[in-house]
């Protein structure tokens, strides 16, 4: 059964459409990655799910009801929206205590979640003095207060050190393995490939794909073989005659699709063509994602290659 059901969710700010007729579902027992470039409308969507922002049109239901109709929603939904959704002058313990009390949750549970996220030692210090990673852990502690069946995380690994990233990945997996629904947004495809089972991909507020990670990887993998030779034009004619689709790259190499590397090598050998390179290539998930969201990115940077690329074998 779907825990989150979004139907035609739309949010406009004046003439700007942040979220455009978005429909998707999030199911229990799996991590659903909410993927899109920066500015695609992920955070706006999460705020609408949580009733913080009102949709211009459309609706989103949690367990069949709008968020605002849940009484004591911490028992059903836990959310980490941003790392700093707390008053810096309040201690971590009191921050959690006031949230717990609002839903009738006792102080004992506050101690438990503090212990779980490893903040017990700093629980009585001003939360404003916590590092970004600790602030993130405090947000996760708040999300876990009511032991909810649905967890929403907005870019949870942003700004974390490698240890923190692994901790959050492991946590999300174990929450899903316990049968909960985990909905996590990210702009990094590689990060999602490591944690998510299912993907909801958006660009410019519109749904681009809703699919399993495996299908997404399979469908969007651009496998090709890179070939270098001094007799390019001869080989190109041969490849075309044998069902290959060679393209010449600016650096002089040939990218061949439609033929396996072994077949290319055999063909070249049979015709006495010396090959300088013959290497099968798998496009990274990041490239596949960029390909998919091309044209739906809000801002194009001047350089590329800054993203975490993860060459994943087919």
């Amino acid at each position: 059964m779907a825990i989150i059901e979004a139907h035609g969710l739309t949010k406009r700010y004046g003439p700007t459409v942040a979220v455009d007729d978005l429909s998707f579902e999030v199911k229990a027992g799996q991590v659903t990655g909410f993927l899109g470039p920066n500015g695609a409308g992920k955070s706006t969507t999460l705020r609408m799910i949580l009733g913080i922002d009102n949709p211009t049109s459309g609706s989103v239901l949690i367990d069949g009801r709008p968020y605002g109709q849940h009484r004591r929603p911490l028992f059903e939904v836990g959310a980490l929206l941003d790392a700093n959704a707390f008053h810096g002058g309040r201690s971590a313990r009191n921050h959690l205590l006031c949230l717990a009390q609002s839903n009738g949750i006792g102080a004992g549970r506050v101690g438990e979640v503090l212990e779980f996220v490893g903040l017990t030692d700093v629980a009585n210090r001003r939360a404003g003095g916590l590092s970004l990673g600790m602030g993130q852990r405090l947000g996760i502690a708040a999300a876990l207060l009511g032991d909810p069946g649905l967890l929403l995380f907005d870019e949870p690994v942003n700004g974390l050190d490698p240890e923190g990233i692994v901790w959050i990945r492991t946590l999300m997996r174990s929450l899903a393995n316990e049968g909960r629904a985990v909905f996590v947004s990210s702009h990094l495809m590689g990060e999602m490939a490591l944690t998510a089972d299912h993907l909801v991909v958006i660009g410019k507020g519109r749904l681009i794909a809703a699919t399993s990670v495996d299908e997404f990887v399979h469908a969007s993998s651009h496998n090709f073989v890179r070939v270098r030779t001094s007799e390019a034009s001869r080989l190109m004619a041969l490849l075309q005659a044998h069902g290959g689709d060679p393209r010449t790259e600016p650096d002089g190499a040939m990218h061949v699709t439609g033929m396996e590397s072994a077949a290319i090598g055999d063909l070249a050998a049979a015709h006495g063509i010396a090959l300088h390179e013959l290497s099968p290539q798998t496009a990274s998930l990041e490239e596949a994602f960029m390909e998919l969201t091309k044209g739906s990115v809000e801002y194009h940077g001047g350089t590329n290659g800054a993203g975490l690329t993860l060459a994943k074998g087919a």
Binding site: A79, L81, D82, F86
Partner: peptide, 18 residues
């Protein structure tokens, strides 16, 4: 206003949407 300036208000309204 301190809830709005710190972001606490979102935690508050997530816990109590009423």
């Amino acid at each position: 206003t301190s809830e709005f300036s710190t972001g606490m208000i979102r935690s508050t309204f997530v816990a109590v949407p009423q």
